[in-house]
């Protein structure tokens, strides 16, 4: 118990500042402001693995650690699509996961956003479009934003989520 206590005290706050979004995109502060305005800085994410290799999942998990600390910015992962505002989908959508993905999308209350993650989510990646996979998430449900990379870094994921919110500011 005292070991844990002393580690708590000596480690200090590890969280890094939010990533700066790529050139041409609005600044992180502007994104943050619109995020506060639009969703009251209280976004809930539901993650669906639609046939991913779990590379993207490892990076998504990293968002929850103390360094990236997505909860500190007011965004959190939830256990049910009914609680969610944003659907984070990975994988090329295997045929067997298509029904589950559609039902998850339908279960999310409006207004809702979809972010496709990874090269598989964007274009099918190394799996492509075949008898066993739909090739990209946009072929199954409407996608608001795509984060490419195999796998994308946690910083890219965070920037992508913020951009998706900023881009759809008017309708959400």
């Amino acid at each position: 118990m005292f070991t844990i206590l002393s580690r708590m005290i000596h480690t200090g706050i590890l969280t890094e500042p939010l990533p700066t979004v790529a050139v041409g995109a609005p600044s992180t502060e502007a994104l943050q402001r619109s995020l506060w305005k639009v969703l009251g800085r209280a976004l809930c994410i539901r993650h669906v693995d639609a046939g991913s290799c779990n590379g993207c999942e490892l990076e998504i998990q990293a968002l929850n650690n103390p360094y990236y600390n997505i909860e500190g910015t007011g965004i959190k992962f939830v256990a049910s699509p009914r609680h969610a505002d944003l659907l984070l989908v990975t994988g090329p959508v295997s045929v067997n996961m298509e029904g589950a993905l559609r039902r998850t999308y339908d279960a999310i209350p409006d207004p809702k956003l979809v972010v496709a993650v990874g090269d598989c989510g964007a274009c099918g990646g190394i799996f492509g479009q075949s008898y066993a996979s739909w090739g990209s998430i946009a072929n199954v449900i409407p996608v608001n934003h795509t984060v490419t990379g195999c796998p994308p870094t946690p910083a890219a994921l965070l920037a992508g989520i913020l951009q998706a919110i900023a881009a759809s500011g008017a309708e959400v």
Partner: peptide, 22 residues
């Protein structure tokens, strides 16, 4: 847990957002 914390009013923001949703 050595993280930066969400704001104190985070719970209120979550409630307001939930009341706004369908």
């Amino acid at each position: 847990q050595n993280r930066s914390a969400p704001l104190l009013r985070q719970t209120y923001r979550m409630l307001r957002k939930l009341f706004d949703k369908d």
